[in-house]
Design a binder for these strands. Sequence first.
DNA 1: AATCCTTTGAAGTAC
DNA 2: GTACTTCAAAGGATT
Length: 312
Amino acid sequence: MPQLNGGDGDDLGANDELIAFKDEGEQEEKRNVSAERDLDDVKSSLVNESETNSNLESRARHSQLFEEGMYSLSVTFPPQQDGALFQPSPYVGYPFFMIPDLGNLCSPYLTNGALTPSARTVRQHTHTCTHIHTHMHTHTHAHYLVSSGFSSRLVPTPQSSIPHPAIVPTGVKQEPGCSSQPGKSMGDAQQEKEDEKKPHIKKPLNAFMLYMREERPKVVAQCKVKESATINQILGQRWHSLSKEEQAKYYELARKERLLHSKLYPGWSARDNYGKKKKRKRTKSETQLEGETMFRFCDTVHFLLTRLVKDL
DNA sequence: AATCCTTTGAAGTAC
DNA sequence: GTACTTCAAAGGATT
């Protein structure tokens, strides 16, 4: 069961979140060094703050008490209109609810729209459930200790045919959405079929992506531009012009995204998505051809210059 | 229909 | 340890 442990440290906050701007000059880089350090400090303090937060310990304690059957659980399911899928808001902490499978249904990371049977059931109901938690053997609980709040969920074990990845027992690595047995060998074609059936779990958004999602509509409105490539260039520039505090806000959001993502999909790896987005890759011959063309071009230029100098 | 473009950041691979 | 690659979002443009 995933639990946020303030003691063991969260290494999800990458240390290299700030890098020198690639396309700017050395001087610009130097000017940014101190600012980067400051922002780095802000970021690490944000991480430390959240990790050492006394509320976190309190929440962890709540979680423990809950598991011991000392607490009752109150879960409120949001109303679903006309059975329509819940559309996640751009970013409001987490727009989906920590309900078994409904979480999958509403998760912004899932893209294939696959509905699990229990999700279909859950989204039909709108109710508030108060449960005196005394029968641990009949329920499986998972607690998400997200910075933004304490969420709990009830999973009636016998009915839950598709266990949520987040409740995979410790030490058991499970591929997201993968029902196949570990170590089971299968043909490549069959493996591909299995892969296609898997829900596509997207990468968590990084700080800049979160910023883009928020600011894009403003840029579109201001600049009357629709081309994403152009908009992204503008957003890239604006991102650099943000203050450290403003950027820190997005780094913190991104950290929470990663944290929650890792809680929801413990076995997920960025590698799982490799190849999901089909990208035309240059073949070796193409690269070689380009190199040869460049070589010939340089050779020609050299020849012409030599001749020019000779003529002069 | 599929891919490219364009940005930054995270995470993976390769050496 | 460093360099490189892939993919997250977005939607018009291009193939």
